[in-house]
């Protein structure tokens, strides 16, 4: 008989692993692995209570958590322009968008928790640098046009990354992604619409849009991660069904989708090597500055310290509030079934 025993994994969480008792055939785990492999092969979902290899569990937790952190940190660069939005309608749209991002973060933390992670623990890992968030949010939003460009380019890149994840092998993550993708497509449309309005407006507005595009184009390409030949984990992630396309494939897809959109807007993308290649059926584009990418990922981007400081302050300054709520709940246990 196999017993399920707790085993501490690399993230400090508890995994349930099969442990053969004495005198029993050792291919118990082998059968579970085979069942897992077959589920993946058939394009079916792994659900929270299914057996899974420790490495799959810890990799998925990390992937989902970093995605969640990105949504929460992403609230800051856009939130930066809420109080200064130049029309009340735009202000309302931006508040709703940033609110959605908080919601997306929560859906994703919720998915990570089905694997045995704890949200407070994941927050600690974010704040002490052991887990990361998308590097794009380490760039500053310097003008109101940045709001539109983030909607267009950053949400556009995110959608490219995220639509395939709707078919992630991990069930709760796939389901969270479907909900998120629906909302994000709305955000991208809003951003694009703002840019269209500005490009049809004054010379100053047009210049603002072009300037924002010049600053966000290359960092958007970096959102897809390092080139395939520098991504050692890609093969395993694809074998596990938690990554569906390589970084370079998605990056190419994004460029192909975005160039016609830039033409429609009337903005120039800041890449002199950008050119349609009829033979390949794709746009050729210039080289990303991977040194800049690595510097930002390592913590030396323009806004890394600022983003972390804000998140840390909210978390630490909120501790007395969270504790008070827990203390009140302990003092006043509610009868079950009472409606709010």
């Amino acid at each position: 008989m196999l017993t399920m025993v707790p085993k501490t994994g690399p993230e400090g969480m508890v995994a349930m692993t099969a442990h053969p008792e004495d005198g029993l055939p050792e291919d118990g785990t082998g059968q579970l692995q085979a069942h897992f492999d077959e589920t993946i092969e058939r394009g079916r979902r792994i659900e929270p209570r299914d057996w899974m290899p420790d490495a799959y569990r810890s990799t998925v937790i990390r992937q989902i958590a970093q995605h969640a952190h990105s949504e929460i940190i992403g609230m800051q660069p856009e939130g930066n322009w809420i109080t200064r939005a130049p029309s009340l309608r735009r202000k309302a749209i931006l508040i709703a968008k940033v609110q959605d991002e908080a919601g997306h973060g929560m859906y994703l933390y919720s998915a990570a928790e089905t694997l045995g992670a704890d949200r407070a623990d994941l927050t600690d890992k974010l704040l002490n640098g052991r887990q990361k968030y998308s590097s794009i949010f380490n760039y500053p939003t310097l003008t109101y046009a940045d709001v539109g460009v983030i909607g267009w380019l950053v949400d556009g890149a995110a959608i490219c990354n995220q639509v395939p994840l709707c078919r992630s092998s991990y069930g709760p993550y796939a389901r969270a992604m479907v909900r998120i993708c629906k909302e994000e497509s709305f955000h991208q449309r809003q951003g694009f619409e703002l840019l269209l309005t500005m490009m049809r407006g004054s010379a100053a507005q047009r210049a603002m849009v072009q300037d924002a595009t010049n600053r966000f184009w290359w960092p958007s390409l970096m959102m897809f991660g390092p080139p395939d030949d520098q991504s050692p984990h890609t093969a395993q992630s694809m074998a596990w069904g938690i990554k569906r396309h390589t970084n370079d494939e998605l990056r190419q897809r994004f460029v192909d989708m975005t160039v016609p959109q830039a033409d429609k807007l009337g903005v120039t993308l800041p890449d002199p090597e950008l050119k349609w290649n009829a033979e390949r059926g794709h746009y050729d584009f210039g080289s990303v500055d991977w040194d800049e990418f690595m510097a930002v990922v390592k913590g030396n981007g323009p806004c890394n310290a600022q983003r972390m400081a804000r998140r840390r302050a909210a978390h630490e300054e909120g501790a007395w509030v969270r504790e008070a709520a827990a203390a009140y709940a302990a003092k006043h246990p509610l009868r079950r079934g009472e409606a709010a």
Binding site: M106, Y107, S110, A111, E113, T114, R119, A176, R322, A325, A326, Y328, A329, H332, L334, R336, E338, A339, A340
Partner: peptide, 14 residues
């Protein structure tokens, strides 16, 4: 549909 954190059931509902 998912999960969330709250201090008590009433807060969870809200």
């Amino acid at each position: 549909v998912g999960s969330l954190h709250a201090a008590d059931p009433q807060m969870a509902l809200r």
